[in-house]
Write a protein that binds this DNA or RNA. Structure first.
Length: 651
DNA sequence: GTAGGGTTAG
């Protein structure tokens, strides 16, 4: 840069600073700064802000602060800049300056300080400031509420909101949005509904942000139809409205509908990264490989292929669709792999019951200098459990605590109970639970109950169930497990008793549903649904296969449609919908083409047998991904160890 | 004349 020969106007400095800032020209920028500080003793606010903005972009906050004689507005900018960069130390420095320069009575300055402290998780400081503030406004309250909400303390957020209401402060749309978000994460439907009513009364409902968070709240409280209703009422839906409803449907197991909304959205709006991640997640849940690949092509074309969560979402898509080949291509193409990338691919092998490969991968991950996190170990425990690698699993449990200093949480304990129990070490599993340093939750007992089902240990299973229902009598999954334990053990009277209990408590099991992709689009099959136009043909194919199985000397699986006496076998909650999906795929695809099915429940033993047989006689590879694992059928053999490790043990 | 604080979706 040339020396300036003429007196330079402020405007010129500002332009120069902007050029340096945008070109990240640190040295030149610093030279301009030193020239400015030599040529003038007084900085105008505009010049100060330009300098500040440049230094902030360079990450040099100290210079940023020293370069100016800040006023109130500049102070708030500096504070929010330090929050943006997560630099609490600097923020504290500014705080000190605020006190010295007597800015401390300004509400806005204090609000930004509260925000800064709570966003770095320093609630002690934020609360202290908040309490000491002579005059608080709605922004101060909202800063506290959203601070709690975003940093994992949603209950404190709701509490603070109640306090605010008590003190007679009127909330605005941002307050409502923040507290609704907290209700969403807590599943506080009652409070959420009250806020909805309040929004109607105060007309705050007119703000799209309020409706958007209502969509989130209702979705997370499992009332996705209510969310749809709110969505329809938004006159000008923005990207967040669409993304909220797409992910709302996704988390309520309505991914196919979610994709429908995604398509519709694209007619009028451009999806952003968050939308794309939600859409990819929906694709992954229903095995929509072709559509997912289209999105992949689209993100590559628009240069977003390696932005933020996109690479890992794509990886997850391929793993869940059972395409480990694509998954590896994606994994290797992604240069900035993080621990999640490794976790996704590890989970893939865990779901396939490939403990050996998972443990090799774990070693590779360590060798490449990636630090495992708690999810890594959950994946590892699952892999070990499904492969019967008990000793290895227990060893990882020690390694996790001792080498990686990760304190086991309830999920880890549940995994270990599963590891021991599945392998038949039920007594050890019980002792393990007794020695836990915290109160076992329903999931821990659920792992034991599942093991009891596998090993037909009715009495111990009943004990586990009793512990579960004392804490959680709402989750249907545990009733299903208990029913299956009884039915596997031939205790029909008990099965009927549990089912009656479920009815009395108004609990229903999701209907069985299977998805299959044929010629690029996904078709859904509900168990027992005969409304599909090709039902007759599908049934004919399945009956034909039944015949062939009979001739081949197989035990004939019962036909789900003719299934009248329900509580008579281990598969009462399977629904057999995968049979319909497979039948449909066989009719509509060319011979030899692999069939990939995804289902929302566990696959029962009968279906497992039947699919094994089908894969043999029609000479097709058939993949069924159920809620627990992948079953890859080929030549009459399943990848889960023919009948699955746990199935063999239970015989 | 303009500017600063709290803002929803993964």
């Amino acid at each position: 840069m040339e020396e300036f020969r003429v007196p330079v106007e402020e405007e010129t400095y500002i332009s120069l600073l902007k050029v340096c800032e945008w070109n990240r020209a640190t040295q030149e920028g610093t030279r301009v700064y030193s020239r400015i500080s030599k040529s003038t003793t007084h900085l105008s606010i505009r010049l100060g802000n330009a300098l500040l903005s440049m230094f902030v972009r360079f990450g040099n906050l100290l210079d940023a602060c020293l370069s100016i004689d800040p006023d109130l507005m500049t102070m708030t900018s500096v504070i929010s800049a330090s929050e943006l960069l997560g630099d609490e130390k600097f923020g504290r420095g500014v705080h000190g300056y605020v006190i010295k320069a007597e800015f401390g009575i300004d509400v806005s300055v204090n609000n930004s300080l509260i925000q800064m402290y709570s966003s770095v998780g320093n609630f002690e400081e934020a609360e202290k400031l908040f309490c000491r503030m002579g005059s608080k406004d709605v922004v101060s309250w909202t800063a506290m509420i959203s601070g709690y909400e975003k940093n994992g303390l949603p209950d404190k957020a709701v509490e603070t909101y109640n306090q605010m209401e008590f003190e007679g402060v009127t909330p605005d749309e941002i307050t409502i949005a923040s507290v609704l978000s907290a209700c969403a994460s807590l599943g506080l439907l009652d409070t959420g509904i009250k806020l909805h009513e309040l929004s109607n009364k105060t007309r705050l409902i007119e703000y799209t942000i309020v409706r958007n968070t209502l969509i989130e709240m209702y979705s997370k409280c499992r009332l996705v139809d209510k969310a749809l209703e709110v969505f329809k009422q938004i006159p000008e839906k923005n990207v967040i409205s669409w993304t909220s409803i797409i992910s709302g449907l996704r988390i309520n197991n309505r991914s196919l509908e979610a994709l429908k909304f995604f398509r519709q959205m694209k007619l009028s709006l451009k999806p952003n990264l968050v939308t794309l991640v939600a859409a990819l997640s929906a694709c992954a849940r229903v095995g929509a490989l072709t559509y997912g690949k289209e999105i992949h092509a689209h993100v590559l074309r628009s240069g977003l292929g390696f932005e933020e969560f996109i690479p890992n979402s794509l990886l997850d898509l391929y793993v869940r669709c059972g395409r480990m080949d694509y998954a590896w291509v994606q994994f290797n193409a992604h240069k900035e792999k993080d621990v999640s990338s490794w976790n996704i691919i590890l989970t893939g092998y865990a779901e396939r019951g490939d403990g050996k490969l998972a443990s090799d991968l774990f070693q590779r991950m360590i060798d490449e200098g990636v630090n495992p996190d708690e999810i890594t170990f959950i994946a590892l425990f699952c892999a070990c459990s499904k492969s019967g690698m008990v000793d290895e699993g227990l060893e990882y449990f020690n390694v996790m605590k001792n080498r990686y200093s990760i304190t086991p949480n309830l999920k880890h304990y549940a995994c270990i109970v599963d590891l021991l129990g599945r392998a038949g070490f039920l007594q050890e599993a019980v002792e393990f639970i007794e020695k836990m340093p915290m109160k076992p939750d329903p999931a821990v007992w659920g792992a034991l109950l599942n093991s009891c089902r596998i090993h037909k240990q009715v009495e111990l299973g009943e004990l586990a169930a009793k512990c579960i229902f004392e804490m959680d009598s709402e989750s249907v999954g545990y009733y299903v497990l208990l029913c299956n334990l009884y039915s596997d053990s031939g205790k029909w009277y008990e099965v009927a008793r549990v089912r009656k209990m479920m009815n009395e408590r108004g609990l229903t099991v999701d209907p069985g549903c299977s998805w299959v992709e044929v010629k690029g689009s996904v078709h859904a099959f509900l168990s027992g649904d005969e409304s599909h136009p090709q039902t007759t043909e599908i049934n004919a194919v399945l009956e034909g296969l039944d015949e062939r199985m009979k001739t081949a000397g197989f035990e004939i699986p019962r036909n789900s449609l003719a299934d009248k006496v329900e509580a008579s076998k281990a598969d009462i909650f399977c629904g057999h919908s995968e049979r319909l999906a497979i039948g449909f795929a066989l009719i509509n695809t060319v011979p030899g083409m692999p069939v990939r099915v995804t289902k929302n429940l566990y696959m029962c033993g009968d279906c497992h047998n039947m699919v094994k047989f089908i894969s043999k006689v029609v000479r097709r590879e058939i993949t069924v991904r159920d809620t627990e694992q992948f079953h890859h059928f080929k030549y009459g053999i399943c990848s889960c160890g023919d009948e699955g490790y746990w199935r063999r043990l239970s015989k």
